[in-house]
Structures are given as C-alpha cells and as structure tokens.
Amino acid sequence: MKLRRFAELLTRPRKVLAGPVAQWFLTAKGQQLERMERELLEPQLLRHFGSYVLHYNPPVAMAAAPSIRHQVSLGDKTLSVDMQCQEHRWPVAADAVDVVVLQHSLDFAISPHALLREAAHCVRPGGHLIIVGAHAWSFFGLYRYLTRSVWRHAYCLPPARIIDWLGVLGFCLEKRSYGAYRPLLNSVRWQNKLGWLERLAARKKAPLGGCYMLVARKMVHGAHPQIQSMRINVAKLRPSVVAAKTSHQKNFEHSEEHDR
C-alpha cells in the first residue's frame, strides 16, 4: 500500500503554478527577490535589439528593453498576458522572436524540457534566450525547504543541466551570472546591513547566489556549398591491355634462371 501511494505521488501531474508564483512576488520577500533579479535583467536587455522580445509567464512586471520595438507576454490564463497559451504550444511562428525571457518559467513548468524546446523553436538564428532561475545551493535554496509557500514545488534546476539542454537545442552560452546572495528577510533593516555580502559576492562572482541568469545565443548554421556531381565515364576505368611478351623478354628470363 505504501509503495502504491509513493508511485501515485511520483506520477501525479503537476499543476500550473503561474498564478501562485505571481502572488508570492507581491510579498515582502518576493519584492526583494524581484529587485535583485531586475539588477541582472535590465542591464542585459539593454544590449539586445530587434523587433520582438517575448516573456513567458512573467511573474513580475516585464523588465524594460529600450532597443527592442515590441514586448509581448504570453502564458497561463491566470496572468495578465497578451496571449494565452499552453507551455508546449505557443501561438508564435518559428524563428520569429529576437529575445525570449524565461523568468522562473522552468522552475514551475509542467515539463521543463517541452517548455525549453518551445522557446528555442521561436528564437531566430542569432537571437538570444535569457533564463532566470532559482539556485538550489544558496540561502534561497535553503529557504525553499523551510517554507510552505509555492517554492516548495519548484524544480530549481542546476544551471549546468540547463546549459547541456541548450547545447542540444543548438544554443551557445554567452553569459552566466548570479545574484541575490543575501537571505530573504522580512526586516528591511537587516537586509540593508547585509548589503556588503551582496557586493562582495558579486565582485568575486561566487556561484552561490539565490538566482542565476543564463544568456544563450542561437547558433547560425552556415550554408553548405553545393558541389556538382562529377560523372566519370566507366570506359575510362577499364583496365588497359597488357602487352604480350617478346622474344627478347623470354631470353632475358632464361638467362636469369641460368645465372641462378
């Protein structure tokens, strides 16, 4: 009976948690994490340009991208997005988007593999995919196990595993950075006192931040030159006629046998 219950727990389908995640970001700790993640996202989005940037299931207000003309959001119906869709079926054409932003989307996806494939399918060659996720090896990762909030259901995938998935999908990692080194506390006073920890860890680029940001570029496959097929005449490959032995050659062979 216990084994059956355990098997049912493993095979239980995951619920869409986009709404509860957005509600958590309205709390004091959620706003603290939002500010620290915005410090990573906004300078990065300043470097990109093009026509469209796409945010899937944005838990907070979308970070500004001044050099991109249109910002589009899509995702679950519980969020205030421009287009509603399922995570494995986006109403976006292939190779149509310059930048796709997944802010904690993989942490709460029903299938992170399917979501990442769908996002990669929409990025144009030479475009970028920006992923922000929660890091398990940090103060925030410890908070995930102690809290009763929605973060108990988060995957918190390791950055190395996501980088491997991106390589399979034809992406090349350009940047990996960390943030939110301070523990999330309700006291603003203690948060300010621990500001030195944030500055020191960011300067040392320690891989122990509460969140990470991965920036990957979709590789452009070069066109292979079309080599014209060379048709070789079969007649040219026929063996040539061997000349018959002359009397001089026969006398030479007899002389060699005599010398032996």
Rank of each mutant, 00 (worst) to 15 (best):
S149D: 14
W165T: 00
A136W: 06
P207T: 02
S149L: 07
E198P: 08
G209L: 04
P159M: 03
R199H: 14
G179H: 10
L194P: 05
A154H: 13
Y181S: 05
L173F: 06
R189P: 08
I131N: 00
A180P: 12
R189N: 11
L200S: 06
R199K: 15
I163W: 01
R148I: 11
G133F: 00
I131G: 00
G133M: 01
L173M: 14
K205V: 03
G167W: 12
V132H: 02
R152Y: 14
L194H: 02
R144Q: 09
R182M: 08
A160L: 03
P207Q: 04
V150Q: 03
N186C: 09
L146N: 09
G141L: 09
W151I: 05
L146I: 14
A160M: 03
Q191M: 04
L173N: 03
A202T: 08
K193C: 15
A180N: 11
L142K: 11
R161I: 07
W151K: 01
I131K: 00
Q191K: 02
F139P: 10
N192E: 13
K205Q: 08
L157R: 14
F171R: 06
L185R: 15
S187K: 05
G210V: 05
L146G: 06
F171C: 04
K204I: 02
Y181H: 10
F171Q: 03
W190S: 08
G127I: 07
V132M: 04
P125F: 10
H128F: 09
R144C: 07
G141E: 09
K193E: 06
F171S: 02
K193T: 09
E198S: 11
R182H: 08
L185Y: 13
I163A: 10
L142I: 14
L197K: 04
L194Q: 05
Y145N: 13
R161C: 12
E174C: 11
P158L: 08
K175G: 00
A201K: 06
Y143C: 09
E198D: 14
